[in-house]
Design a protein around this nucleic acid. Structure first.
Length: 300
DNA sequence: AGCGTGTCCTGGATGC
DNA sequence: TGCATCCAGGACACGC
């Protein structure tokens, strides 16, 4: 399940192989892959065939290709199970292959078992702050389809104090705010739990009752845990996720709470608990992340 | 307007 | 053993 560090690993891998190359062939193998793209498969193929890739950019979990002076971008979201495979081995199974591209001398596959991922063409427009929209972008433009996606904790143009203030302005729980991509992007269930553990904050803590220092602490921990995950090559839980060359990440060994229900807390040895949260689950240490007083607890 | 819930999807795990 | 149900997850449409 690719989150920000995994997506960045994919971005860097793609940039290594297809930057300055021309897309010569596009083939779609599943209609859901292009469901959000205006005009569908035909328009996407039309917009990309013959185009030269001049940047591979990323904001949060979204990737996009820039094409020189063109306003059009090819936007990619890997969803839960999406993978990008470059020059896949000849025997690689094809049953989850959703789209394939010939780019320069490379074969590039978009493989996605659960089909939550998608590809789309999006026009772009100038960023409000005049800065590049994300890692790898070399122009101050953002795909219009993701104008509402906030900068992520690894983005050098992200204003963490401003994000902390936005979090505190919400009437919800800190975990919901962290998962809201319009507040801060790139944080999924795994890194939300990890960041909150490191910051010693309960997932259901009401954001409006948090101090600026506490909110900022959570964001800094998110940045830290993602930086470490990135250095380790991305997190992986099963064979669904592999990076562009088909290798799995190995950061999962470093996770402190996520997926560790019943196992001892790395700090205090009390068993980690798993609780249901908004049709999902939260993992926390009942001792390091104590339940706040009712007045400081959000409804969900 | 802002917030919370339901939905999309597949296949491994679990239950009877 | 086999069938049925549950569950995981990100993003967004929708309703309150």
């Amino acid at each position: 399940m690719p989150e920000l560090p995994e997506v960045e690993t994919v971005r860097a891998g793609l940039a290594d192989h297809v930057l300055d190359q021309v897309i010569t062939e596009v083939e779609f193998r599943h209609p859901r892959a292009t469901r959000r793209s205006p005009g569908g498969e035909a328009a996407l193929a039309d917009a990309t065939t013959g185009a030269r890739i001049t940047a591979i950019a990323r904001r949060g979990k979204y990737l996009w290709c820039e094409f020189g002076n063109s306003d059009a971008t090819l936007l990619i979201h890997l969803g839960m199970s999406g993978q990008i495979l470059i020059d896949p081995r000849p025997g690689m199974p094809r049953h989850h292959l959703r789209a394939r591209f010939a780019i320069g001398s490379h074969e590039v596959w978009f493989v996605d078992q659960r089909t939550f991922g998608h590809l789309m063409i999006s026009e772009s427009h100038e960023t409000p702050d005049g800065q590049p929209a994300g890692w790898g972008s070399n122009q101050p433009r953002i795909p219009t389809a993701i104008w509402h996606i906030a900068r992520d904790p690894l983005d050098s143009y992200a204003d963490l104090p401003a994000i902390a203030r936005a979090i505190r302005g919400r009437t919800t729980s800190i975990k919901r705010a962290l998962l809201d991509q319009t507040v801060v992007s790139g944080i999924g269930n795994i890194y939300a739990d990890e960041s909150l553990f490191h910051a010693r904050i309960h997932p259901r803590r009401a954001t409006a009752t948090m101090s600026q220092k506490q909110a900022l602490k959570v964001l800094h921990e998110a940045r830290e845990v993602m930086t470490q995950a990135l250095a380790a090559g991305g997190t992986s839980f099963d064979v669904l996720y592999v990076d562009v060359a088909g290798r799995s990440g190995y950061f999962e060994r470093e996770l402190t709470v996520y997926g560790r229900a019943g196992l001892p807390c790395v700090r205090c040895a009390r068993p980690i608990v798993r609780e249901s949260f908004a049709n999902r689950s939260s993992h926390r240490c009942p001792s390091c992340q104590r339940t706040p007083a009712p007045a400081h607890l959000a409804k969900c």
